[in-house]
Nucleic acid binder design. Structure first.
Lengths: 226, 226
DNA sequence: GACATTGGTAGCGACTAGCTACTAATTGGA
DNA sequence: TCCAATTAGTAGCTAGTCGCTACCAATGTC
């Protein structure tokens, strides 16, 4: 552990910045996050890398993430900058966290594993806070960005989609209302394929194909609390 | 100009980070942003400071902002980290931008001035992009955070509030619908004071006093486009 | 006192969201 | 063979919400 820390400090440096990745997907109908599972590490942590701030941030991060995962994430956004308070494994005082999403069924690369996101294994103190911010960020952005769709493969059933929405929102939704809203939004189009999963009627497969619809000029929402 | 740059580089250092502040308010029913107006500068810019990443980021930023403005901002949030591409006046490669709001009528401190936010004076290339992100961030967050209320003094009329909403949303709202939605949200309470502004019937003054209301479990919103 | 100006509300019609209840298509077992 | 169980998908009712027009209220100006 101590050896690990000193070598990474040598790579990153105290004044430099690091990059934390919070990569989410759905596993067993639970929200899951990609964590390290080093055999010598005390607990689990988030994948990270020293950050060379020259060059465009988003491009740099996307390149590193693609290399780490073996594929590009299906969706990605910056979560924000966090002060590490000297606790980051890189030794960096400042970290920039990125939030990524991959489809269900994506395998964790070597040295990493999927951990339950809502009741995660013990993480270093600063990391837990970032993870909480990430989950809140997912929920905030899912109605302005296609987060749920990006957690699914290219074609999916409407029940699949509803399950992802319920998982992200943390509550059940009504089937008919969900589908009516989806229909009105012109976000998916049916394919010619059907999927039969053992019991029950086969479900039609859809793909994410958003159409430009006219701005509906909705009313002001006062959703704030305190 | 050249002398300025070299001294700031000496303070901040190439590998370090800087902090950009985007401070907004309403001036003449237009969205305004606080910019520098140095007599020797080529154009205007955003206020910034070298960032010491030790210590909690939010606390550090709030302290500096309070000193700069002579008062604490009435609302503040982090906008994100940006790669400066060598163009930041501090010489830093990475900047963290914070978005702040102060009430209408707040005077610009020495060396700074309010500039129109939507059609701003020429800014350095990287800064313009940050400003655009800030305005988009304001609009995104105004229905989950009391941004509009924080742009007003402690007591205000409902017409004042509606004007700020229209300014932030960039479109007109209907008076009756706006007030009905506000009533239903239990966000304001009337005071005993009234304000008469020359012509017309005097308006009752309200204060921002959000009450906890039970979660109304609203439906899923599919507001995404592409 | 008429008029202009601004504040504030009532109520109508169209649309929307949540719900119950139904039909449809498949598997598996009595 | 046929019925129960299971999952997919839809119809239609009801209560609420949203945008709008129209109206009343209170002040200053001429």
């Amino acid at each position: 552990m101590k050896r690990d820390r000193s070598t990474t400090v040598a790579r990153a440096g105290r004044g430099s910045a690091a990059l934390d990745l919070i990569c989410c997907t759905a596993v067993d109908r639970r929200l899951a996050v990609l964590t390290t599972v080093g055999p010598g590490a005390r607990g689990r942590g988030l994948p990270w890398t020293p950050l060379d701030p020259r060059g465009a941030l988003d491009v740099t991060v996307l390149r590193w993430t693609r290399k780490l995962l073996g594929r590009a994430p299906s969706w990605m956004t910056q979560l924000g900058a966090f002060s590490a308070g000297g606790r980051h494994p890189s030794g960096a005082a400042l970290t920039v966290a990125y939030l990524a999403v991959v489809p269900v069924g994506t395998e964790a690369p070597d040295g990493l594993t999927w951990s339950p996101a809502t009741e995660p294994p013990p993480l270093p103190p600063g990391r837990q806070w970032i993870l909480d911010a990430a989950i809140a960020g997912l929920r905030d952005r899912m109605d302005i960005a296609p987060v749920a769709f990006r957690m699914l493969p290219a074609t999916f059933t409407l029940s699949d989609l509803q399950q992802v929405y319920e998982l992200l929102l943390g509550r059940r939704l009504h089937k008919a209302s969900f589908r009516r809203a989806l229909q009105a939004a012109f976000l998916v189009e049916p394919t010619d394929s059907w999927r039969s999963e053992g019991r029950g009627r086969p479900a039609q497969l859809y793909r994410y194909a958003p159409r430009k619809r006219r701005g509906v000029r909705r009313s002001v929402r006062f959703e704030l609390l305190g």
